[in-house]
Structures are given as C-alpha cells and as structure tokens.
Amino acid sequence: MDDSTLADRLTQLGLSEKEVDTYLSILRNGEAKASEIADNTGVSKRYVYSISESLEDRGFVEVNDHIVPTTIRARPPSEVIESLTSQLSEMESALDSRYSDTERRAQQFDVIKSRVTVVKRLTEYISNATDEVMLSVPQQYLPEIADELEAAVDRGVLALLVVSNAADIESEDVAGMASVARSWQQEMPIVLTVDGQFGLVAPADMIIRSNSDQRAIAFVQEQLVPVLSGSFLGNYWPMATELYVAEPRELPATYRRFRQPVLQATLRLRADDPVHVTASVHPVQADTDVETLEGTVVDTRQGLVEPQTNAYPIEHTLVVDTGEETVTVGGPGSFIEDYEAEEIILSES
C-alpha cells in the first residue's frame, strides 16, 4: 500500500490531513523531537504538540514529555490495530441496535424507484408469507413470481390472485399458483398484501415499461394493510372473472387468519363434505374471556369464490350449528357476527 492509499485509509478513521502527515512522519522516524517533526511537515512546533496529544489520545503515539526535549514515539502498528479493533468491537452492539432500528423504520414506508426493486420486494414479501397473499399482477409478469406463489400455496398460504392484461390466459396457466385466481383483460395497478402486515402498490407501467418514471410504494403497517386488503376485495376482485379454484386442502388444519378457513369450509360444503369446527372465540365487541365453540359448519358468507354469498366485500363468516343453536363466527375485528374467532380448527365431521 503506497503512502497516498495509506493516508486515505487513515483519513477514513477520522484523522485530519495534518494529523495524517504528522503521524506518517513519526512512523518514518520511529521517535523524533517536536522540532524535527515540525520541519518535516511544515507546521509549527506548537501545532505538532497539539496534534501529538490528539494522536496519543487515540492510541497512535506516545508523547514523552518527562524528558527534555520532549519526543514523540510511534506505538507499534500491531498495538495500534489491536486498540482500534477493541474500540470497534465495543461499538458493535450499539451499532447493530441502531442499524436494526433504522432498518425497521425505513421499511414502514418506502418509495421505490426501479422495476428491479419492485420485483425484489414482491418476491421477498411472497416468500415470507405465512397465512395470506392477495396479489394483482400483469399476465406478462406472472412467470417471474410463479415459483414464489407456488411455494406459498404449498405452505398452506391462502393466495388470491388477479391476473390483469389477460387476453388469452387459461386455468392451467395459474394452476398451483393460487388458492383462487381471477383474470381481467384491463390494465390495473400491481397490488400486494401479505399477512395483513406487508403491502405494496405500483402502477402497472412501472413493471410493463422499462423506461417508466412512475414510483411504487411498499409499507409495513398493520393499520394500513387491512385497508388495502379491503380495497382489493371490494374494487378489484369483483371486477375479475373466476379462472381457477384449487382443490380443498387436507384436514384437520389450524388457522389464525379467517379467510382461509371460510374458503375451505365453502369448498367442502359444496362437495357435500361436512366440516367440524373448534374455535377460540369471544362475543363480538365484548370484553370477555376467550371460550371454546364447537359445532358443524352449515353455511358460509363469502366473496372468495363464485357464487358470492356475502352482503359486502369484507364479510367472511362461518355459520355454525353447535347442537343447541346456530351462531355466526367472524374473524378479528368482526362487528356483525355473534362471535369473533382468534383461532379456528377445521376437521372432518
């Protein structure tokens, strides 16, 4: 490493240009008087004393002011590196803590400028999905995320897919990529929600046209993502034509989110396959302890598959015969059902 590169590295450690010149002069001499260093660096002897004290505080040199004349000696480089390493190690946990916090805050709301980053964020979010994915995407882009969608469905994730700009798509083109897929010939925004926590919205131009100056927005916000989910189910999903519905999944199965068990119960009821439900519930809008509700699902209200049976887009309800009465069960945030469920277990009746 030449002197110029070494000087650059020392500057990166926080040394000023004069401090670097002084330190390199001391290194070359091993030990020197302040007057000698002043002559070599072109600064005053008083300034050499000041810089040397700063370098001593940082562990680079030792100032021998107990002798006359005062000399400045360079510490062995191995000791300097060891000292710097120790200081950096002490900072590591604090830096990690602040970096993680900064990263978390940045993810709350990100403006995305490039198509590549949109693709990366979509695949990242889908790959990390554990419960539910809602996605609208142009047909020409579907192959780029097909693997992530198929893997999510294999994990038991509810995947609701709208394929836009779809002129000639067939059901076999999306088989395995969704729980339910719909197609729409018109262009529409790219919309993604994952697990009620992660969301992304992008103009279709941003994916379709490489020279687009449009921007996408990605966010992590539990209060905002459900609003986007409601918009997806209320504005985009009904406009599209049903293209593909997957076979019912194997039972028993446990669910923390509610639309998947409603879909599975609906599919089994239509196949005359009764479903037993065990749910951890509490009365809607009541501050009471959780209780266990058991019974047979006799009906559903939903808009996930045709024909639609709900009164409004976000209504997804299980109608359960407990043996004593027939009650309605909704998911978290329910307000018209009898009970709000925290966990649902479906099993064969």
Rank of each mutant, 00 (worst) to 15 (best):
V320L: 03
G295R: 08
R73N: 01
E53N: 15
V174E: 10
H316R: 04
P143V: 09
K113P: 00
S347M: 12
Q214C: 06
E17R: 09
E170L: 12
E124A: 10
E62V: 15
T292R: 06
P143H: 06
D147R: 13
V320N: 08
E247S: 14
V48N: 11
T71S: 11
T130E: 15
W184V: 08
T41S: 10
D195C: 12
E348A: 13
V153P: 07
A271S: 14
A175Q: 11
Y339H: 04
T296S: 04
I37K: 00
A271T: 01
A286D: 13
Q197P: 00
S50W: 11
E291L: 13
L233P: 03
Q223G: 02
V245R: 03
T123L: 13
D3Q: 08
A74M: 10
R58T: 03
V116C: 02
S35Y: 08
A152D: 07
E325W: 04
A94M: 07
T241H: 05
V284C: 01
Q140L: 11
I112W: 05
N211D: 14
R105T: 13
Q221W: 12
S54P: 01
D96T: 13
S4N: 10
V191Q: 06
V133P: 09
L24F: 00
Y99F: 13
S35T: 15
V68G: 02
L233F: 03
D2L: 09
S280L: 12
A7R: 07
E103W: 05
V162R: 00
S16R: 13
T266Q: 04
V180N: 01
G333D: 13
S164T: 15
A166I: 11
G156V: 09
E17L: 11
A178T: 00
A178L: 13
E148P: 02
T85K: 07
V327A: 07
G176S: 11
I112T: 03
A106T: 06
R259P: 00
A253C: 06
E172T: 12
I190D: 09
R182L: 07
A216L: 05
Q285L: 15
T130I: 02
H282M: 09
L243I: 09
E79H: 04
S231C: 10
Q214S: 14
Q308K: 13
M206E: 06
V174A: 11
P203G: 05
S164V: 12
L13Y: 04
L192P: 09
I169C: 05
E103L: 10
D273N: 14
V63C: 07
Y244F: 15
A216H: 02
K18C: 02
R209V: 06
T254M: 08
T123C: 11
A74D: 01
P238N: 10
E17M: 09
T102S: 10
V119C: 05
D110T: 12
G234H: 13
N40R: 14
Y99N: 11
E187C: 05
V327P: 01
